[in-house]
Computed example of a mutant assay.
Amino acid sequence: MFVGFRNYAKLFGNADFRTDVINTLFYAVLYAPLVVIVALLFALLLNRKDLKFVGFFRTFMFLPYVISMTVAAIAWDFILSPSLGLIPYWIGKLTGIQHLDLLGTSSTAMITIVLITVWKNFGYFMVIFLAGLQGISQELYEAAALDGVNTWQKFRYITVPALRPTFVYIMIFGLIGSFQVFDQVFIMTSGGPDRATETIVYRIYTEAFGNGKLGYASALSYVLLIMTLIVGLCVLVNNAHHEKEEIA
Rank of each mutant, 00 (worst) to 15 (best):
P161R: 09
F2L: 12
K154N: 14
T228S: 14
L63Y: 12
G104V: 05
T199A: 05
L40E: 05
V201F: 08
P193F: 03
R6M: 05
P82C: 02
V185R: 01
A15L: 12
Y8P: 05
L115V: 11
L94G: 01
S106D: 11
A72G: 04
L84Q: 12
R58Q: 12
Y141Q: 03
R6C: 00
F155M: 12
L86H: 01
A208F: 09
Q153Y: 09
I247L: 14
R6V: 00
V3I: 12
V235D: 02
N121F: 14
P33H: 09
T112A: 10
V3G: 00
Q180S: 09
L115S: 09
L163P: 04
L220M: 13
D77N: 14
A143M: 07
L220R: 03
S178K: 07
K10E: 15
A131M: 07
V231T: 14
V185A: 08
M188Q: 12
R156Q: 12
L25S: 05
A43H: 02
L46H: 06
V66A: 13
A145G: 02
Y31F: 15
L84P: 00
V235T: 04
I111H: 09
D194E: 13
Y205A: 08
M1C: 01
V35S: 04
A28W: 01
I67V: 15
G191H: 04
L30D: 01
G92W: 00
A144P: 07
G96L: 07
F62M: 03
L51K: 03
L224E: 05
F129S: 06
I79A: 07
I226A: 13
F78Y: 11
A144R: 08
Y65M: 07
A73Q: 03
L229G: 00
V160P: 02
L225N: 03
N238Y: 12
R195K: 15
Q153K: 14
G92V: 03
D77R: 10
V223S: 05
T151S: 14
V181D: 03
M171I: 15
L100K: 11
L100R: 09
V181Y: 03
E139V: 11
N47S: 13
I158D: 07
Y65L: 01
I176Y: 05
M110K: 09
N239V: 01
V71E: 03
F182K: 06
V29C: 09
G104R: 04
F12L: 13
L25H: 02
E207R: 10
S190G: 13
F26I: 06
A208L: 10
I97V: 14
G92R: 05
P88E: 05
G132L: 04
M126Y: 10
A131S: 13
A73T: 11
F53K: 10
K244I: 14
F53L: 15
F5S: 10
F186C: 00
H242K: 14
A145N: 13
I158T: 06
H241F: 15
R156F: 10
V3K: 13
G215P: 05
M227C: 14
L115I: 13
L94R: 02
P165W: 09
S107C: 01
L146S: 08
L63T: 11
I170N: 04
V235S: 02
L229P: 00
L103W: 06
T206M: 13
